[in-house]
Design a protein around this nucleic acid. Structure first.
Length: 291
DNA sequence: AATGGAATCAACCGCACTACG
DNA sequence: GCGTAGTGCGGTTGATTCCAT
């Protein structure tokens, strides 16, 4: 049949989002909640396709997103999960609720892949014993297509902090969108600052980052202190996740069977290996744990 | 200071999947 | 069962920034 385009190409704006557009989108979602993305550009007058709106929200504007440098702990988790799941970025992101799959994907492609290469080169020279190589137990599982598909879905779904958008379509509508009007006004403040006469050039395209836009700062939303990696591990949900509607959280609880053995292993191992991975992620010459 | 290549990351593209009529 | 709409996801692109020369 051929899939029709998600939106008309004519008159649709592409490229970086402006602060004005961000405000419109956030305001709308604040009022109506995420979901039904088709109606978003229609109702807001945004010259963006629905997909673009959804992406902007999930990857950038959604509350609870942490931006900026990845901690060594996070790196360790990503490396670990990537070795286990492959490029299942959404599944990996479900274990790092403050990070988006896009962020993780980018970070992997730009930073971690290089580190791995470097490491593998070193490993080739010093030839670490394969018996302690975790990947030897993991890789065969990954190559087994359907089996692993099942596992990664299972893991993503059972993740105690699965990202709202990664479980199913509906979950997004009850996700952590409920940032307060306070956040909206803070966004406005950030915008006002960035577009002040002193800084007019920024008006066109100053990407709203956590550094300049308090709305996006978890520190701001959680009242000051950024949670360390300990908050990423269960059972501590991030602040915004606590705003999930009662119905949805109940649904999720009911839908979450006990952790699978693979997941238990993952969480246990992740905790144990953080130290080693930290040294790995520092880019030094320690013997790799995973590769 | 100018310039060109490398690195980064937000955003887009296109396919897959699911729900629904 | 089929067609369509809505959404999720992974790969890729391209604009911008950084850095070495």
């Amino acid at each position: 049949m051929g899939r029709p385009p998600c939106c008309d190409k004519v008159g649709i704006k592409k490229g970086p989002w402006t602060p004005e557009e961000d405000i419109i989108l956030v305001s709308y979602i604040q009022e109506h909640g995420p979901g039904n993305w088709r109606s978003v550009p229609i109702n807001t007058g945004l010259m963006r396709c629905s997909k673009s709106c959804r992406l902007r929200w999930t990857n950038y504007l959604r509350p609870g997103i942490r931006r900026g440098n990845f901690t060594p702990h996070e790196e360790g988790i990503i490396v670990h999960l990537q070795s286990l799941l492959g490029n299942r970025w959404a599944a990996i992101a479900s274990y790092l609720p403050q990070r988006t799959d896009n962020d993780i994907k980018n970070y992997w492609n730009t930073h971690l892949k290089k580190k791995l290469k470097k490491h593998q080169a070193i490993g080739a020279i010093f030839a670490p014993p394969p018996s302690s190589d975790l990947s030897t137990t993991v890789v065969p599982a990954i190559s087994g297509a359907s089996h692993v598909d099942h596992h990664h879905k299972l893991i993503a779904q059972r993740s105690p902090f699965a990202a709202p958008g990664s479980l199913d379509g509906d979950s997004s509508s009850s996700s952590s969108y409920a940032s307060s009007m306070d956040n909206i006004s803070k966004l406005l403040n950030g915008f006002m600052k960035s577009s002040s006469p002193r800084n007019e050039a920024v008006d066109i395209k100053p990407p709203i980052t956590a550094e300049v836009n308090p709305l996006l700062s978890l520190e701001h939303m959680s009242g000051g202190v950024l949670p360390d990696f300990a908050d990423v591990l269960p059972p501590q949900p991030v602040v915004m996740e606590q705003r999930i509607s009662h119905n949805e959280s109940t649904k999720q609880e009911q839908a979450q069977p006990p952790l699978s053995s693979i997941e238990k292993w993952l969480l246990d191992e992740a905790a144990e290996q953080v130290g080693d991975l930290m040294s790995f992620s520092d880019g030094c010459c320690s013997v790799p744990m995973l590769f």
